[in-house]
Structure formats: structure tokens, C-alpha cells
């Protein structure tokens, strides 16, 4: 009951700002946001729609599903599969490692400077992607990388003889994790901060053990924002190209690299197939983000 009346008041307060709802002023009202909408329509929405429509057309401009079916070519399916695997693995590893680090710096009783230093560094590292990141990993775990060489000379462990290759699924995943973990830390730390101390005290008063408190309070509250962030990380990795391209050239055929080659030189010999690939990418990241928005709205109920 109290809830209802409160929200009614809030709505009443919102809908009646003085002297605003005059119908005559409507055109000028909208003038203020026109540049933004023109920009968004011309340079975000229309180009995307253009590709999406193109995915369902043939060269003569007729409607067809052929391009979508053509996505089932072995090399395209393989590209999608490896992209999904790398994105999923890097987002899950990044999310759990990021969560562990976030909990360690917020709740682990570490000195305060570690928390602020980690947060600053996370801001930097989450934006440190692309060619420089790829090269950093080549210098570390490439055939002549520092760690590869040190392991070989000090311990006698030859990574490459044991089947490790930086230009592979695991190599790419390990590299992506470098910007995934910090992104997780940046997003999840405020959520952990949002866990109110009173909840712990309330749980303790009711006789909950530490593990019960985590299992029945912390995890359910953090769960939506955690899952939401995993999905954001997934989309983040799925669209990334520069890192992979610098790392592997075109030897690891992930979707963005395939699309890049298609835009550059029509390697698939079918312009509309390029549109279909782009459509597939938007479909997957879009699907991921619908889940993200859904989880986000659920988690915001608690973290106000």
C-alpha cells in the first residue's frame, strides 16, 4: 500500500511541472534534440538498417533468404564458432577473475591505496586494447617472448613444444582477458560497494553464518549485475578486431576479421553475404544486450 501511494505521488510530481504541457510549444520543444536524432539516424541507425536489409536482398534487390542460408558455409560457421568461443571464454574468465579482484580490494581488508590504484589501473587497462595490447602479448608469450624464454631457460619448460601457441584460441582468449578483467572490476566495484553493511548485520542478528550470508544475500544481490556484465564483456569481445588482427594476422579466422577481409576485397565473392555476416554479428550482440538491459533493470532495484 505505502509503495503504491509513494509511486503515485512521484508520478503526479513528474507530470505537472509548471507551465510545460502547453501543446502550442511542442515544435520548439523537439527542435532542441533534432541535431542528435539526425546524427543518430544518419550515422548509426540507417547504415545499420541498410546492411540488415541488404542481408535479405539479392543483387536485383529482391527479397531472399539465400544470404542467411549461405552463412552455413563451413568457413563462416567456423568463424562464428571460434568468435563465440573466444568471446564466451574471455568474458567468463574475465568476469570471475574481475569479481575476485573486486571483492579482494573492496572487502579483503587490503590497504586503501591498493583499492584506488587498482581502480585507476583498471580504467587504463580496460582501454588498452588493439595493436599495443597484441604486441605486449607477443613480447610476453610469443616464441621469443620474455616469459616463454625465461620458462625455457630457468625451468626447462618449452611452452611451444607443449602445444601452446599464442596465435590460437587460448592465446587470443588470454589476450582478451587483459581488457576484460579491468572492465569487470570497473563495473562491479560500485555494485559491491552498494552491498549495505546493514544487510550483513541484519543477517548476523538473525543468526546467519558467514557462508549463509554470502549464499543468501550477497550472491542473489550481485547476481544480476554480474550476469549483466558478463554479457557486456561478451559483446565487447565479439566486436573486437584490432587485437586479434594484430596478433594473428588472418590465421585465426574470427568473424570480425572475416568481415574485414570481405569489406576490403570481397573474399567471399558475394557482396550480400557480407551484409548477412554483419547482420549475424548484430543479431548476436543485440541478443546479448537485450539480456544485459533486462538484468540491469533487475539489479538496479537493489543498488540505489
Amino acid at each position: 500500500m505505502t509503495d503504491l501511494s509513494l509511486s503515485n505521488q512521484a508520478i503526479a510530481g513528474k507530470t505537472a511541472p509548471p507551465g510545460e504541457a502547453r501543446a502550442l510549444r511542442l515544435p520548439t520543444q523537439w527542435l532542441g534534440v533534432t541535431p542528435f536524432f539526425i546524427f543518430a539516424i544518419m550515422f548509426l541507425i540507417l547504415p545499420t538498417l541498410y546492411l540488415m536489409l541488404g542481408a535479405f536482398q539479392n543483387d536485383a534487390g529482391e527479397f531472399t533468404l539465400e544470404n542467411i542460408f549461405a552463412l552455413s558455409q563451413a568457413n563462416i560457421v567456423a568463424a562464428y564458432w571460434i568468435s563465440i568461443k573466444v568471446s564466451l571464454a574471455s568474458s567468463l574468465i574475465g568476469a570471475f577473475a574481475g569479481l575476485a579482484i573486486a571483492i579482494a580490494i573492496v572487502r579483503g581488508g587490503l590497504p586503501n591505496w591498493i583499492r584506488s590504484a587498482t581502480l585507476t589501473f583498471s580504467g587504463v587497462a580496460s582501454n588498452f586494447a588493439g595493436v599495443p595490447l597484441a604486441f605486449a602479448f607477443i613480447a610476453t608469450l610469443g616464441r621469443l617472448g620474455l616469459v616463454t624464454v625465461l620458462l625455457n631457460t630457468l625451468v626447462g619448460l618449452n611452452l611451444y613444444a607443449h602445444g601452446f601457441n599464442l596465435l590460437s584460441f587460448w592465446g587470443l582468449t588470454l589476450t582478451y582477458v587483459y581488457f576484460q578483467i579491468p572492465l569487470m572490476v570497473v563495473i562491479i566495484v560500485p555494485a559491491i560497494d552498494g552491498l549495505k553493511r546493514e544487510w550483513g548485520e541484519a543477517a548476523a542478528t538473525l543468526g546467519a553464518t558467514q557462508s549463509q550470508y554470502w549464499r543468501m544475500v550477497v550472491i542473489p544481490v550481485l547476481w544480476p549485475s554480474f550476469l549483466g556484465t558478463v554479457i557486456l564483456l561478451f559483446a565487447n569481445a565479439f566486436g573486437a578486431i584490432a587485437t586479434a588482427y594484430a596478433l594473428t594476422g588472418s590465421s585465426l579466422n574470427i568473424v570480425p576479421i572475416l568481415l574485414y577481409a570481405q569489406i576490403r576485397g570481397d573474399v567471399l565473392h558475394n557482396a550480400h553475404l557480407g551484409y548477412a555476416i554483419a547482420f549475424g554479428m548484430i543479431f548476436i550482440t543485440g541478443l546479448a544486450n537485450i539480456f544485459y538491459i533486462w538484468f540491469r533493470t533487475r539489479s538496479e532495484r537493489w543498488l540505489k
Binding site: P47, T48, T285
Partner: peptide, 23 residues
């Protein structure tokens, strides 16, 4: 507006630029 500003996180950069090139 918030939804539109989030679109660039959904639509990969390579797709956006592909659209530009064709349009």
C-alpha cells in the same frame, strides 16, 4: 535517447563503418 547512446556498444564498429562505406 539513452537507448540510442548505448547502440554503439551493441553494433560493432566494423559493422557501423561497413554501413558507411555502402551508404
Amino acid at each position: 535517447v539513452e537507448f540510442i547512446t548505448l547502440l554503439p556498444l551493441v553494433i560493432p564498429a566494423i559493422v557501423i563503418v561497413f554501413g558507411y562505406i555502402r551508404m
